[in-house]
Amino acid sequence: MNKELQLIKQQLTDTYDGDPWYGRSLASILNEVATKHAWAVKVNNNHNNTVLLYHIINWRLFTISRFEKDALTTTAHFEENNFPSFPQPTESVWRNGMQSLTLTQQHLLDKINKTTDEILDKKVPGREYNFRTLLNGIVQHDIYHIGQIMVSLK
């Protein structure tokens, strides 16, 4: 029946573009980010919202890749691309990131749909934790960065 995966999938959906219990979804907030907020405003004097957007995408790609048994991409690749830099801030970089986020959301949900709850106790390739920790972590990761992005919009 995959009850636990269905719960995780619902949390991913609510967090991404649903009606989460804590407030607004990631997509609704990111759609509000104007170019000024995407590049100029640094969250905690560190990363701007564009970097955070691509950081979120990176760890979704990592999660998707761990479902693929013959994944060619090492975990080091994702660690190296953790917080990417962009030489030229452009609106197309933001737009491409938003499209990529949408695609990775759908791809992640597709991966979850094609598996069973039994995967949750299996160790994530290249890590010391299981898929339960990874999938719940990606939800928590999104919520954490939603908060950072909201601060930048004030």
Rank of each mutant, 00 (worst) to 15 (best):
N2Q: 13
E4D: 09
E4P: 03
K9D: 09
Q10M: 10
Q10N: 15
Q10V: 05
L12M: 10
L12H: 08
T13A: 05
D14I: 06
Y16Q: 06
D17Q: 14
D17E: 13
D17F: 09
G18W: 08
D19H: 14
P20V: 02
P20Y: 06
W21C: 02
Y22E: 08
G23W: 10
G23I: 10
G23M: 08
L26N: 03
L26I: 01
I29K: 05
L30P: 00
N31Y: 11
E32Q: 15
V33M: 01
T35F: 15
H37Y: 12
A40Y: 13
K42N: 12
K42Y: 06
N44R: 10
N44M: 08
N45S: 10
H47I: 04
N48L: 09
N48A: 07
L52P: 05
Y54Q: 11
Y54C: 08
H55Q: 11
I56Y: 06
I56E: 02
I57T: 01
I57Q: 04
W59G: 04
F62N: 05
T63G: 07
I64E: 07
A71L: 00
L72N: 13
T73P: 05
T75L: 09
N82E: 15
F83L: 07
P84N: 07
S85L: 12
S85D: 14
S85N: 14
Q88L: 01
P89L: 00
P89C: 02
T90S: 10
T90F: 02
E91L: 06
V93F: 00
V93T: 14
V93W: 00
V93N: 06
R95Q: 14
R95D: 09
N96Y: 00
G97N: 03
M98A: 01
S100T: 12
S100L: 13
T102S: 13
T102I: 07
T102Y: 08
T104P: 03
T104W: 03
Q106R: 11
H107S: 15
L108A: 00
L109G: 07
L109P: 04
N113T: 10
N113W: 01
K114R: 12
T116E: 15
T116M: 04
D117M: 06
E118T: 07
I119Y: 04
L120C: 07
L120F: 10
D121V: 15
D121H: 11
K122N: 11
K123L: 13
P125S: 07
T133P: 01
N136C: 09
N136V: 11
G137I: 13
I138V: 09
I138W: 02
D142R: 00
D142G: 05
I143H: 01
Y144A: 11
Y144N: 12
H145S: 09
I146A: 10
G147C: 01
M150R: 14
V151H: 10
